[in-house]
Amino acid sequence: MLEARLAEAAILKRLLDSIKELVTDANFECNEEGINLQAMDNSHVALVSVKLSASGFKKYRCDRPLPLGVNLGSFTKVLKCAKDDDVCIIKAADDADILSLTYEARNSDRIAEYEMKLMDIDADTLNIPDTDYDARVSMPSAEFTRIVRDLSQLGESVRIEVSKEGVRFISDGEAANGNILLRQTDDDAPPEGVTIEMNQHVNLTFSLKYLVNFAKSSTLSNVVQLMLSNDVPLLVSYDFNQGHIRYYLAPKIGD
């Protein structure tokens, strides 16, 4: 069985907001180390990977590995019934087809109980190889959100170029183009500053639609890391106290 007590429902609410438009149904894989989710979008262009560590919960018990197949739309609706600062307890019995959620109000005696149907989801688990990326950029997550939202007004794609100069985001739309250069901030470390590590010049093009979607995770962390190597998927990573959310995005190819 699973019993997990989360100090604030906000974390789960924000996580669901970060993935619900990318993936419809997914397994939350629970084991004694915590809860993991890995899912690819229908078009096999993006993959999201979430980890919530057992140590991030006020109380956590999972006797044996338990996949909780969830419709993310339904889960989002049930979580909307929780206030951000409610304590959130999720429970599931072994082989059960129901997930129960309890929201305990912080400053009153209100206790709300909800149940959600679980589903069998037959999804392959993918092996994500460890990659030595050619470039690693760390920046304020709000800055990344602004850049991808701004450029998505102009065109469908962004070219990300990492060089000695810094990291440049370039959009070349039909009617307008734009580019934003971020230089490494020498006097300011993350979360406020920008750090750039580069072994090799990187030049890759990505769909802005996906990046705008990923940027929703800025509610979970003040810092985002972009990991890039030529011709391999981009890794966009947000770390927070209880775990992380990582997105992989296949680059656009050819001319």
Binding site: V45, D124, T125, N127, T205, P233, Y248, A250, I253
Partner: peptide
């Protein structure tokens, strides 16, 4: 213009 690539091929099924 560039075509959208896919993740298949980068990640193997466990």
């Amino acid at each position: 213009s560039k075509q959208q690539g896919r993740l298949d091929g980068f990640f193997s099924v466990k």
